[in-house]
Write a protein that binds this DNA or RNA. Structure first.
Length: 146
DNA sequence: GCCAACGTTGGC
DNA sequence: GCCAACGTTGGC
């Protein structure tokens, strides 16, 4: 069963564009137990919305888990922390902003809002689909003006 | 830049 | 084991 997640990155630290350039990245630096536990639950093939926090505050892409958790080499001997490897799947274009997510009644229970500071959040399949649909709807609105 | 939310640390 | 102090995240 494919699971869905939302992973946050500050755009000046690791933007979506860099993931596109590099093709694959190690999702490192998580130092929160709950986020860590989510990383450990990720399976190969799980899909992640890529969210820009702070500057941006919007979902900008979809990534896929290609390697399940292994020790975080940046943790300097602290074996509590793990990473996963992800690759880009597709851009979310136009992006879906936090404001739009907050407005959407179908997303009122989303972990992103309920636990604002958690950097790796589990999503329901319906929530994942809904966010992509909001983006697609915006494309329709742009192309269908008469 | 401020501050609310919340996780972590350390004294007792 | 409680809880006050402190640090960090991230929206505004």
């Amino acid at each position: 069963m494919v699971q869905y997640w939302l992973i946050k990155s500050e755009p000046f630290k690791y933007p979506w564009s860099q993931l596109l350039n590099e093709g694959v990245t190690m999702w490192e630096g998580v130092r929160n137990y709950q986020a860590r536990n989510n990383l450990k639950s990720m399976k190969t093939g799980d899909l992640c919305l890529f969210y820009h926090s702070n500057e941006g505050k919007e979902v900008v892409g979809v990534a896929k888990v290609v390697k399940e958790h292994y020790p975080d080499p940046t943790a300097e001997g602290d074996d509590r922390w793990v990473v996963v490897d992800v690759v880009p799947v597709e851009a979310v274009e136009p992006p879906v902003s936090l404001a739009e997510i907050k407005q959407d009644e179908q997303l009122s229970e989303i972990g992103l809002i309920k636990q604002m500071r958690l950097s790796v959040v589990e999503l329901k399949a319906a929530e994942f689909d809904r966010i992509l649909q909001i983006s697609a709807n915006k494309n329709d609105a742009n192309t269908s003006h008469s």
